[in-house]
Design a protein around this nucleic acid. Structure first.
Lengths: 353, 353
DNA sequence: CAAAGTGATGTAATCGATTACACGAACTTT
DNA sequence: AAAGTTCGTGTAATCGATTACATCACTTTG
C-alpha cells in the first residue's frame, strides 16, 4: 500500500474522516457508483426512488465530486485562463469583472496570469495551457503565447480555443473582441477640430502596441480630412501610464508655443498631463484642452472632469467570455466583435481662445 | 471502448496526434513509466544515462505531465483561490499583483473569485474549496466561507489552509495579514488636530465592516486624547465609493457651519468629496482640509493632491501569499502580520484659517 | 565467504469519477 | 406466444501519473 494518505493527511478534515467519495454515497444509497454518477449528470435516466436515495445520501455525506478525477476522465477542467499584460493597471479590473461574471454563470472558473513583461512567465503559461490545465484562454496582451509578433496561426501545441480581447493579434486566426480604435481616435480628433482647434498634440502609447497604431491612424485620418498639417513635433511619446502623462506635460510646458489641444490616448496620461499643466499655471481647458481615452472611473472625478472616449469595459469582458464559451460548446461564433464607443463630453475640452 | 476521445477530439492537436503521455515517453526512452516519473521528480535517483534518454524523449514528444492525473494521485492542485468582495474596485488590483507574483514564483496558480455580494457565489466557492480544487485560499472579503459574521473557527468541510488579508475575520483561527487600521486612523486624526483643526468630520465605510470599526475607533481615540468633543453630526455615512464621497460633499455643503477638516476613510470618497466641494466654490484646503485613506494611484494625481494614509498594497499581497505558502509546506508561520502604514502629506490638508 | 547493504529499475496498485456494454424486467407489437 | 423495445441498473475498463514493493546486479563488511 502506498502512503500518500498517511503522509499528507490530505483527505481528512479536522474530525479525521476522509472526504466522501462516490463509493461512499453509493454504499449508503444501496446503488452502484454508476447510478450515483447518473443521478447527478442525467437525472432523467434514473428512477425517482433511486434518485431520492442518492440525493439523501449525498446530503448526509456532504459529498462533492472530486474535480481531478472528473477532469482526468472527461478531459475538461472548467477553467479558463485570462492573460494580462499588467494586473495592477486600473483599466483591466472592470474587464475582468465582466469576464468573471460571465464565466461563473456558465460554470467556469477563472485563472489569472499577469505577464508583467516576463517572456519566461508567458512561456510557462503557454505550457500550462498546452498541458490541458484550462479549457480555453482569453488573451489581453496582444500576442499569442510564445510567438513573435509576426507569427501566424496558433502554436501547434496549444489545442484549446483562444480569444483575443482589446488588443487584436495581427495574423492570428482566433476571434477578436474589442473596439474600433481608429474610428474612436478619429471621432475625438474630429471633435477637437470641430471646436476650432488647429494645433492638436497627440500623446501616444507604446510604439509597438497595436492599439497605439490604430489610434494614431485615426488621429491622422481626422487631420487629413480637415486639411490640417501633421506636425511630428506634436507627437509626444507615452506608454499609457500616469507618469508619462506627467512627462508629456513637462515637455509641453517647455515649448515656445503650446498647442491648443492635446489628445492623450489614455485617461491616466491625460490626468497626469492636466495636473502638470495646472501646477505650471496653464489652465485647462481655457488655455489648453485635454482629451483622454478609456473613461476609467476617475475620469469623471478628475479636475476638470475629463472629456474622453468611453470603452464599455464590462461588456467587453462579457463578450469575450461569451465567445469563448460558445467555442467550447461547439457553437458558431463571431470571429470579430467591435463594441460601440462613445465620446463623453465633460469639462477638460473647450473651444480655443 | 468508450467514446470520449472520439466525441471531443480532446487530446489531439491540429495535426491529429494525441498529446504525449508518460507511456509514450517511456517507450521512446526504453524505460518504464516509473523511471520517467522519477527522472522528473527525483533526478538524483535515476542513472545519468536513463535521465538523458528520458529528457531526449520528452523533448522529442513535447511531453507535459497531465495535471489532472497528477492532482488525482497526489491530492494537490497547485492552485490558490483568492476571494474578493469586488474585483472592479481599484484598491485590489495592486494587492492581486503582489499575490500573483509571489504565488507564481512558488509554482502556484491563482484562481479569482469575485463575490460581488452574492451569497450563492460564496457558497459555490466554499464548495469549490471543500472539493479540493485548490490547495489553499486567501480571503479579502472579511468573513469565512458560508459563515455568519459571528461564526467561530472554520467550517468543518474546508480542510485547506486559509489566510485573511486586509479585512481581519473576527474569531477565526486563521492567520491575519493587514495593517493597523485603528492606529493609522488615529495617526491621521492626530495630524489634523496638530494643525489646529477642532471640528473634524469623519466619512465612514459600511457600518458592518471590520475596517470601518477599527478606523472609527482610531478617530475617536485621537479626539479623546486631544480632549475634543465627539459630535455625532460630524459622522457622515459612506461605503468607500466615489459616489458616497460626492453624497457626503453635498451633505456638508448644505450645512450651516462647515467643519474645518474632513477625514474620509477611503481615497475614492475623498476625491469625490473634494470635487463636490470645489464645484460648490469651497476651496480645498484653504476652507476645508480633506484627508483620505489607502493612497491609491490617483491620490497623487488628484487636484489638490491628496493627503492620505499609504497602505503597502503590493507588499500586503506578497505577505499573505508567503504565509499561505509556508502553511502549505508545513513551515511555521506568523498568525498575525501588520505592515507599516505611512502618513503621506500632500496638498489637500492645511491648517485652518 | 556469506550476509547485508546499496542503487537502479520495473511491475502494478492506486487516486475517484465516468460511461460503454451487458443484463434482466416490464411492456409492446405482430 | 414469440420477438422486439424500453428502462433502470450494475460491472468493470478507462483517464494518466505516482510510488510502494519487488527484483536484480553489484559492492561492502564481519
Amino acid at each position: 500500500m502506498d502512503d500518500v494518505a498517511a503522509r499528507k493527511g490530505r483527505s481528512k478534515n479536522r474530525a479525521g474522516e476522509r472526504a466522501a467519495r462516490i463509493q461512499d454515497v453509493a454504499r449508503l444509497a444501496e446503488v452502484s457508483t454508476a447510478t450515483v454518477s447518473r443521478a447527478l449528470a442525467t437525472p432523467e435516466r434514473v428512477s425517482k426512488e433511486a434518485r431520492a436515495r442518492v440525493l439523501a445520501a449525498i446530503a448526509r455525506t456532504g459529498y462533492v465530486p472530486n474535480p481531478a478525477a472528473r477532469s482526468l476522465r472527461s478531459q475538461k477542467t472548467n477553467m479558463i485562463l485570462v492573460v494580462l499584460p499588467d494586473l495592477a493597471n486600473t483599466f483591466f479590473s472592470k474587464i475582468l469583472h465582466g469576464i468573471e461574471e460571465t464565466l461563473f454563470a456558465a460554470g467556469y472558473g477563472m485563472i489569472i496570469s499577469d505577464l508583467d513583461g516576463s517572456p519566461a512567465k508567458e512561456a510557462h503559461f503557454a505550457a500550462f495551457t498546452a498541458a490541458g490545465r484550462v479549457d480555453g484562454a482569453i488573451l489581453l496582451n496582444g500576442h499569442l503565447f510564445g510567438q513573435s509578433r509576426d507569427g501566424k496561426g496558433k502554436p501547434a501545441n496549444i489545442t484549446v480555443p483562444l480569444v483575443a480581447l482589446c488588443e487584436a493579434i495581427p495574423g492570428a486566426d482566433i476571434p477578436q473582441i474589442g473596439i474600433d480604435n481608429r474610428a474612436a481616435a478619429r471621432k475625438m480628433t474630429e471633435f477637437l477640430v470641430s471646436l476650432g482647434h488647429k494645433r492638436i498634440a497627440y500623446v501616444s502609447g507604446p510604439a509597438a502596441n497595436v492599439l497605439e497604431k490604430e489610434r494614431f491612424r485615426g488621429y491622422r485620418d481626422a487631420l487629413r480630412a480637415a486639411n490640417l498639417p501633421f506636425e511630428q513635433d506634436l507627437v509626444i511619446p507615452g506608454d499609457y501610464t500616469l507618469e508619462t502623462g506627467v512627462a508629456a506635460g513637462r515637455q509641453l510646458i517647455a515649448r515656445a508655443n503650446l498647442p491648443t489641444a492635446v489628445f492623450c490616448t489614455s485617461d491616466e496620461m491625460a490626468i497626469g498631463l492636466i495636473r502638470t499643466l495646472t501646477l505650471a499655471g496653464v489652465n485647462v481647458p481655457t488655455e489648453v484642452s485635454v482629451a483622454g481615452f478609456d473613461d476609467i472611473e476617475f475620469a469623471a472625478a478628475a479636475e476638470p472632469a475629463l472629456t474622453t472616449i468611453h470603452q464599455p469595459r464590462r461588456e467587453l469582458g462579457q463578450a469575450a467570455a461569451k465567445v469563448l464559451i460558445d467555442l467550447l460548446n461547439g457553437r458558431p461564433s463571431a470571429d470579430r466583435i467591435l463594441l460601440e464607443t462613445a465620446l463623453v463630453k465633460r469639462d477638460s475640452v473647450a473651444p480655443p481662445r
